[in-house]
Each structure stands twice: as structure tokens, then as C-alpha cells.
Amino acid sequence: MAESDTQRIVVVTGASRGIGAACASAFLANGDVVVGLSRSRGTTPTGAEFVTCDLTDPASVEDAFDEVTNRHGHIDVLVANAGITRDQLAIRMSDEDFSTVIDTNLLGTFRCARSALKRMIRQRSGSIIMVSSVGAFMGLPGQANYAASKAGLVGMARALAREVGSRSITVNVVAPGLIATEMTEVLGQERVEAMTTQVPLGRIGQAEEVASAAVFLASAGARYITGAVLSIDGGLGMGH
């Protein structure tokens, strides 16, 4: 299908799997043009474009956003979803395990937001949605690095929301709880079942349920929402 003038350009980082892939599919279903940014195409949904990007490399990030701008002329939505884990109990966690997670999850998201905002400020419109985690608010043992990175996104999103509010750009955070992805699989079935007992809705969530929240936050109906954290966790954090 040819791109129409009214189609939005949606950039999704980490679109090759999990929540990112679900977000890409959801925006595609919404009629948007989706560009996935990740190291490899992976299982980036069919119909989505793909640009190689290493979030830990500032030049690679800016190049990727240049490429999107060259292709489409504008960027309307950024879903900053890419993230990694290097779980380890703190007393055994190396500085490298900590800084690697911060570099990708927090600094990588900042790099993407900076590149996107440069363009959105000119347009005087745009939506940024950062994908945090229930772990940012509740903490999980073994995730000192991950929790710090995901909690950092909230402060960053709110600072950015204030900086660019005058340009009608919104910056919001979604905080997924226990979601059925590869990242959750590594926790093991026993731990997942134990955690599920803490979820008021009594089940694990699906990536599509996070994606629908991202689509909403980028929609015309959500233009008065900025700096918010929207929990998608079956009630686990009770909205924190």
C-alpha cells in the first residue's frame, strides 16, 4: 500500500520481538507506517520497515533517525521499547553488568528521544512512549540494574514532557507487569506462577495488551496526557 499524506510515521525500537513487535503490529493495524529499529530484523512484523540501529552507539542512533526522516520526511511517534536484562544478585553484579543495562535501556532511550525530539520540535507535534516496567516501582531481586534503568525512564520522561510541552509533544511511560515474552520465560515457570498469584487479575499479560496502551497514548484522544505512567500489569502495582 502506498504511503498517504495523512499516515503517521511510527518508530519502534526493539521491534524484532516481544512487546516491541506487538507494538509494531498494533500501529500497523492502526494504518500507520512503522519503522522498526534494532540490531537485526529478527521477527519484526511483516509490513514494518526495518533500519539497523545500535542503541549504545550515538552515531548509529542519529543515522537511523536520519534514514527514517529521509524516507518519510517526518516522525510522529516514537515507542522506545528496546531493553535488555543482565540479572544477578547485587553482591555478585559487576559494574559492567550494571552499566551495560543502563547504556541500552536508559541512555539508549535518551539517544532515541533526543533524535526524535529534534525533528518533532520542528513539526510542533509528536508522541513519545517509553516502555518501563513494574520492576521500576516494585523491584525484583536480581534486577538492581534493570530496575534502576526502568525507573530512570520515568524521571527522564517527565523532564522531557516539561521541555517540549509547549510544542504539543507528549512524553509518556507505560509500565508493563508480567507479560508473556522471552524476557519473562527466562524467569522459569515456577517463579512466573508464584508472581501470578500476586496479580489481582490472576493471569500473565499479553504483549498485545501493552501495545494497545501505546497506541492509545499516541492517539488523538490522548493529546492532553503527558508525563503519565500507565501501568499494564493486571493490578500488580495498583497504578503505583
Binding site: I121, S166, R167
Partner: peptide, 11 residues
Amino acid sequence: ADSLDLVELVM
């Protein structure tokens, strides 16, 4: 022009 405009102009 606000502070963001100024930064944009400088860039």
C-alpha cells in the same frame, strides 16, 4: 521566542 526556540536557533 522561548528557551527551546533559542536552543533550536543556535543549533
